[in-house]
Every structure is written in structure tokens, then in C-alpha cells.
Design a binder for these strands. Structure first.
Lengths: 342, 342
DNA sequence: TTGTACGCGTTATCAC
DNA sequence: GTGATAACGCGTACAA
């Protein structure tokens, strides 16, 4: 890196601390990392010297010598999507206070970017890696398989974990939601989806599972787009859907933003959400409950995913044998007014 | 760090590359960092060797030797707040492809956490630092002042930048919004605010500036809470407000979440947003435009803040003299249906 | 339990 | 333009 034009105070090193505590650097190093290996007396002297001198370990030197950094790499496809933001929140809360640093990588849904980011992270000899989803490219897959650190795949579940997994079945969740629509008496359920990433595709699968099981024809009641999701897009997709499939009497959205947009648009069109048009979102972000009418959604446990991902990494880093390599967090249907027919 | 139980491939080093290119390590290092200093021929041989061997630099070794890491520390008070998420988005987009890594720190609105995180970041000899707001604790202030890297404060403006700043005046923005309510003919404007952080306090100031200038008494029309903001909270605060100040005919919310909650709650109560109750949010997140009725808000330029923060850091890191140490991004009132009286 | 010697992979410094 | 040498600050391996 190029230099920056500011001051440069001399650094306090292990050696300074050792001199002050009248011992050797390696003992100080041990006292800091594994206090149990150092005698009580020495430990105290060292602790005193550390605070007096204001010693702060140099992570670069540590990483170089130990061939292992304190970085936990986290790859997510979008920073703005509130779903991932909540995963991050749980993740950061859990990592706080621990001697590790989360380093965020934004893949922007691009496999090449993901490959590259994984390379960058691995060059740091990370303590652990968290990656989103189970659809890594062959390149990424190979890199992760060869990684000499624990890896957690989050958000979904799959047959062949690279290492560990924590998530839930998007397909089952969407099927449950669709079953709910059918049970509530809607005859022509539709599916609209934005940003059709692998998880959304599996939700669509779940939708199809459900209507097939109920002997309902799909007709033209599936509208999807690769465009990133937004509330506004909900209105657009609703218009498309009603144009091509006017019989539609219920909609499963691949996420809550769309559902909110559909609701606003329905109000504009004078369509009564619930009685005339059933509406179900996905993820159950906070606004679903607060909306008027409140909107049915499938709750997913996003903060828990972040928390568990770190817990699993920590367990492995500490050498514990994790018996459950794959954790299914499930989901919960939250029926609300938007799927009440009267 | 403790070891992790996985494989451990031998690392390709500068020396390997140098041997293959029949030159010295330092020349390879130079060829990679300042190609201009190495002859064309050698540069090609080296490039070839690098790709053939799949050499990836070790950031830890680099940081140790150069006393400068490629880390850009970013401190924000909340990961889930979509406002900061968008700042991050601009920031990550801008940093992508550059030889720097953003490292995120979540202060959770706690000054002690911020102090601690700044210490942690500084121990990494970061290439630059991005911190939120201008209300750092004395400790943080001192740490930042002594930091030997460029620092950008984002989100607001202030008289005494630690180093650089990019933001806007929350006070002016809120005043503009309140003026708008008054101009539209609302006689009893109110303010509701959640999570009253320093920026929200300044918005409240702006609100008070405006009503004072219009000779309007504040009455009991200010309701605030330290509780984190949410859509649901908008409903709660509306109830409180109307209970203690029934004359209220317009509301400035300290953010868009609250505004949305107020709108839903108003629908429930049969209050017509616009004609009966003026409503204005803050930040102008996407849903404001899509809502029905659409909600007036003050647009702020969050992605731009993230982008500019990195741009300013880069300029300084590259040794350019940044003439504008403080950048005012302004704001834009977006009048919509929620402040239409008829 | 404590210490010695060395190496981690890179860059700064100074010579050629 | 290129190279030898010596750090950078810490942890591993081994010895005491």
C-alpha cells in the first residue's frame, strides 16, 4: 500500500512488555493467548505491563507467524437487502467481544465476483468462512473444499455441504405458504417473483409442488423477473399478472417487498386484499405485521442464522467436534388479514 | 488463533515466483506494486510466473513489512438500519476492484463499543477509516486525531472535522420539511422520533427552528423515544401524540419507518393521510414513493455518501491533496400525496 | 513453567 | 533498473 501522510507513533511490542515484566516475549505471548500456561505471578506482572504500556497485539504479525488470521470472511449477495442485513446483525452481535473480525464481501449475485472474493479471503488465511447459499460455482466449490478453515453455508440446506450448513428449505416453506392459500379457499393462486436467484427458484418449486398436489392448473399465473426486488416492482408485477391471468384470486410473493407493493397497488385499484385477493409474502419482515391490513408471510429466522453460523465456526475453531454439521432452522407461517376471505 | 482441522496446502511465495522468473523477490514485489519501476521484459517474465504459479500476495506479510494494511475500517451504528445499508452499498461498490478490504464495525450506538472498535481497527494499521457522525467520544476523538491514516466522518457535517467529512445538515433538512408542512397550510405540525441519536436530535432542532420562525407554538406535539425505530413504533407514537395533542394536523417523522407506521395506523383509525393529517418522512427510502397514498419525505444521498467516502480516502492514500475536506451532499424534499390537503 | 532460536512472507534501505 | 540485507512483530519447535 502507498503511504498516508499522517503521524506515526512508535509501536509497543511484545518485547517492550516482556522487558517491563522482566520475562521473555514468548511468555507474554502465551500469557495473552493461553493464560493457563503461565504462572499466576507472572501473569499478573504481564497484565500490569500490558495496561501500563497500552500494548495492542499486531494482527498482521500474529497472522504471519501463526499462519492463521483472525478474519472471518462473510460473503453475501447484497448489502441492501434487509434479509441479509438481519443475518449480518445476528452474526456481528455474536462475534462481538470475540477475538475475531468479520470481513464482509458483497458478491452482488455474480458468481465470478464470488470466486474472486473467496480467493481474496483465502489469501488471508481466514479463521473461518461464511458463504450464502449452496449454488457456488465449480471454482468456488473447489476453493472452499480445499480451504484449510471451517466453512458454513447459510440460508438454505442441501445434500452436499461443503463443510457445515445452517438454513431452511425454501421449497418446503413456499409449499406450506401455498397450501395455506389453498386451504383458505383461494382457487387460483399465483406466484410473482423478483430477482430469481436460486432460493427464489426453489420457492417457485414449492409453489408448484403445492398446486400440483391440489390438482390446480398453473395457467399463466407465474410471473417472474431477474430485476432486483422492490416495493414498486410489486405493483408492476401485479399489473402483468392480472393482465395475463385475470382469474387470479391469491398471490404468493417471493418476498415481502413485493407483497407490500402488491398491497399498495391493490388499494389503488380498489381490490380488497383478503376477501378479493389473498396475499402472502416471504420472510416476514417487521412491516408485514404492521401493515393495514396485516400481511400473511412465512417467517424465517435470519438473525439466528447469523448467530448459529458463528457459533458453528467457533466450535470448530476451538477444536470441538461438531456433531450436527447441518442445522435446519425451519420456518413459520404467520397467517394474517391478507389471507382472510371475510 | 487456535488451529482449524483442515488441510493445509503449501503457499506460493514471492520467492517461488522470483526463482521461476529468474530474478529476485524484491523485483517481483516491485513489478506487482509499481510496474513502472521494472523493465518491460522482466515484467512480462514475472507476470507469466505469477499466473503459472497462481501466486497470491499475503496481506499479513505485506502489512507487517510495510507497516500498513489494506484494511479500510468502517464504523456504523447499526447493520439492520436500511439507511446505513445503503451507505455500505455505495461504499462496497466503490471499493470493489480496488486493492483494499472494507472491514465493518457495528457500534450499536454505544460510544464504548466505538472506542473499542477504533482501537481494534487502528491496531491493524488501516489504510483508512470511515466513521459515522460527528459525536465521537473524547477517547475516540483522540484516537482518530492521532491515527496515522486518513479518516472520513460520514452522514453529517460539523465545524471541526477530525480529518474529512461527507454528509449534510440534518437540521436544515428537517427545517425544510417542516416549512413544507407549514406552507401546505397545516397549522399544528408535530414531530415524532424514535432512537433519538444525535442526528435525530438535530432534526428535532430543525423542526423547532421552523415552527418558531412561523410563530407556531410547539405545544405537546413532540413525542420521542430512545427505542429503536420500527414501523410498528410509528403506530404507538401516533397514538401517544394524538392522545396528548389532539389538535395535531401534520407530522414530521424522524425517519421513513415511522412515517409508514403512522400511515397504516391512520388508515386503521379512519384518518385520511393528506387532507386530515399531513405526513412527512425522512430519508426517502423506496417505499415512500410506492405507498398508497405516496408519502412525502426528504431524500438523502446515502449511496453517494458511501461512494464519496471511499473516493476521498483513495485520493488521500494516493497522496493527492484533497482541497475539499468537507463535502456537503445536501438533501431534496420530495413532496407527495401525504402532504396534499385536498 | 519458562526461554532460545528461528521462520513466517513481504518491503524499506541502501548499494550496485 | 536491479539486487542483497535487514527488519516488521509474533508464534512454533524444541530445549531447559
Amino acid at each position: 500500500m502507498t503511504q498516508a501522510p499522517r503521524k506515526s507513533p512508535p509501536r509497543v511490542t511484545l518485547e517492550d512488555v516482556a522487558r517491563r515484566a522482566q520475562t521473555s516475549t514468548i511468555t507474554v505471548s502465551r500469557a495473552l493467548r493461553r493464560p493457563g500456561m503461565v504462572s499466576e505471578k507472572l501473569r499478573e506482572r504481564i497484565a500490569k505491563a500490558v495496561t501500563e504500556l497500552g500494548y495492542v497485539p499486531d494482527p498482521a504479525a500474529s497472522a504471519l507467524a501463526s499462519r492463521r488470521s483472525n478474519v472471518i470472511g462473510v460473503l453475501i449477495p447484497s448489502v441492501t437487502n434487509s434479509v441479509f442485513a438481519e443475518v449480518l446483525s445476528g452474526l456481528y452481535d455474536t462475534i462481538a467481544g470475540k477475538p475475531f473480525n468479520a470481513q464482509l464481501g458483497n458478491t452482488r449475485y455474480a458468481p465470478e465476483t464470488e470466486d474472486e472474493l473467496i480467493r481474496v479471503f483465502l489469501s488471508q488465511r481466514p479463521a473461518g468462512l461464511v458463504v450464502t447459499g449452496i449454488d457456488q460455482s465449480p471454482v468456488s466449490r473447489a476453493l472452499l473444499a480445499a480451504a484449510d478453515c471451517p466453512v458454513v453455508q447459510i440460508m438454505e440446506l442441501g445434500e452436499t455441504p461443503t463443510d457445515m450448513m445452517v438454513g431452511f428449505s425454501h421449497r418446503d416453506a413456499a409449499r406450506t405458504a401455498t397450501d395455506h392459500l389453498i386451504e383458505r379457499g383461494y382457487k387460483f393462486p399465483a406466484f410473482i417473483g423478483a430477482r430469481m436467484d436460486p432460493r427464489s427458484e426453489r420457492r417457485l418449486q414449492g409453489f408448484r409442488d403445492a398446486i400440483a398436489a391440489a390438482d390446480i392448473a398453473e395457467g399463466d399465473r407465474v410471473v417472474t423477473t431477474p430485476t432486483p426486488s422492490s416495493v414498486t416492482l410489486g405493483e408492476t408485477l401485479l399489473a402483468e399478472l392480472l393482465a395475463q391471468a385475470p382469474e387470479t384470486d391469491a398471490i404468493l410473493c417471493n418476498n415481502d417487498d413485493l407483497a407490500l407493493g402488491v398491497q399498495f397497488a391493490a388499494h389503488r385499484r380498489g381490490i380488497a386484499i383478503g376477501p378479493e385477493l389473498g396475499l402472502c409474502g416471504f420472510n416476514d419482515i417487521e412491516v408485514m405485521e404492521a401493515a393495514h391490513p396485516s400481511i400473511t408471510s412465512v417467517r424465517t429466522f435470519r438473525r439466528e442464522m447469523g448467530r448459529l453460523a458463528i457459533d458453528m465456526l467457533m466450535a470448530r475453531i476451538e477444536g470441538k467436534d461438531v456433531d450436527e454439521n447441518v442445522r435446519d432452522l425451519g420456518y413459520a407461517l404467520m397467517p394474517r388479514d391478507s389471507t382472510m376471505r371475510e
